[in-house]
Computed example of a mutant assay.
Amino acid sequence: MITIVIASCKKDNYIVGGQLENTTTTLTTYDYLKSNRYQLFDTLLMVIDKAGLKDAINKQGITFYAPTDFSIKNYLQKKTLEAQKVNPFAQYSIDTLMKYDLGKFKDSLNAYIIPAAVKYSLLTQNGVIFNTAKTGSKAVISYEETFDPNLGYTSAVSTAPRIEYYNFIKGQLPAVVVASAIPDTVGVRVLCQTTGLTTATGQLNVLNNTHVLYFKQ
């Protein structure tokens, strides 16, 4: 495991493939996200408040894989491009999401919640299957060695660092699951850029800034 220091709030420069220096907090999951000094979750929490889902991410014993505000921005950009195929002047904004898409948000947020404490000790290189809080959906969560220098590997260490991936499953899993080999038609694989935080109410991990809300491809 490695620790990468927070340098700025740029899209690709928050925390990648690492573990927090301080892995426990007395704050609830909601309050910890709200206290983020880079305000990476302000839009997320605004929509959570509007949808009345604060208690859902603060439920005791769950693990929340939090998307950042960049994930919401990525989603809005994709929806705008889709709308502009019909109307070149169309814009899909956060106001549009809250007016027309809040029901979907309420349901889909559950795909980011595992109703159990996901600890490193439970995970494997090939991944473990978990039920999500979204009815009928599953995720494969893996804890994989990396030899990518961009994810913290260096030849100066004798043991390769490990990083966590969250793979939301949309299709039929094969009989033998290898997380890194799950095709795009079956699952959406997302790097966790921050992992292993224990809050006053549960576990908290943060998905990579390149993720698109609702696991939209």
Rank of each mutant, 00 (worst) to 15 (best):
I2T: 08
I2N: 05
T3G: 06
T3H: 14
V5T: 13
I6V: 04
A7C: 02
S8P: 00
S8K: 01
K11G: 00
K11C: 04
D12K: 08
D12Q: 10
I15T: 10
I15C: 11
V16D: 08
L20W: 02
L20F: 08
T23Y: 02
T23S: 14
T23W: 07
T25K: 02
T28W: 06
T28V: 06
T29N: 11
D31I: 06
D31Q: 13
L33I: 14
R37E: 14
Y38I: 04
Y38H: 12
L40Q: 15
D42L: 05
L45Q: 10
L45R: 11
M46N: 11
M46G: 04
M46A: 08
K50E: 13
A51S: 11
A51Y: 04
G52M: 06
K54I: 08
A56W: 01
A56F: 05
A56G: 01
N58C: 08
K59V: 02
K59Q: 14
T63V: 05
T63D: 06
Y65P: 01
A66G: 09
A66V: 05
S71N: 14
S71D: 03
K73S: 11
L76R: 05
Q77V: 12
K78L: 09
T80K: 07
T80R: 08
L81V: 10
Q84W: 06
V86L: 13
N87W: 00
P88K: 12
P88W: 07
P88V: 05
F89V: 01
F89M: 11
A90R: 12
S93K: 01
T96G: 10
Y100L: 04
G103W: 01
G103V: 00
K104R: 11
F105P: 08
K106V: 08
D107A: 09
N110D: 11
A111Q: 09
Y112E: 07
Y112A: 07
I114F: 02
A117C: 07
A117Y: 03
K119Y: 15
L123Y: 09
T124P: 06
N126L: 05
G127W: 12
G127E: 10
G127N: 03
I129L: 15
I129E: 15
T132Q: 10
A133M: 15
T135G: 00
K138T: 14
I141H: 04
I141E: 06
S142Q: 11
T146H: 08
T146K: 07
N150M: 08
N150C: 03
L151D: 10
G152H: 11
S155N: 14
A156L: 14
A156P: 00
V157A: 09
A160S: 13
A160R: 09
Y166N: 09
Y166V: 10
Y166P: 11
Y166K: 08
F168C: 07
K170I: 07
Q172G: 03
P174R: 12
P174Y: 14
A175W: 00
V176E: 13
V177Y: 10
V177I: 15
S180H: 12
S180E: 14
A181W: 01
G187V: 07
G187P: 02
V188P: 01
C192V: 12
Q193G: 13
T194G: 14
T195P: 01
T198G: 04
T198N: 14
T198E: 13
T199I: 01
A200H: 02
T201H: 03
T201P: 00
L204M: 04
L204D: 00
N205P: 00
V206P: 02
N208F: 07
N208L: 01
T210P: 00
Y214L: 04
F215W: 06
Q217P: 04
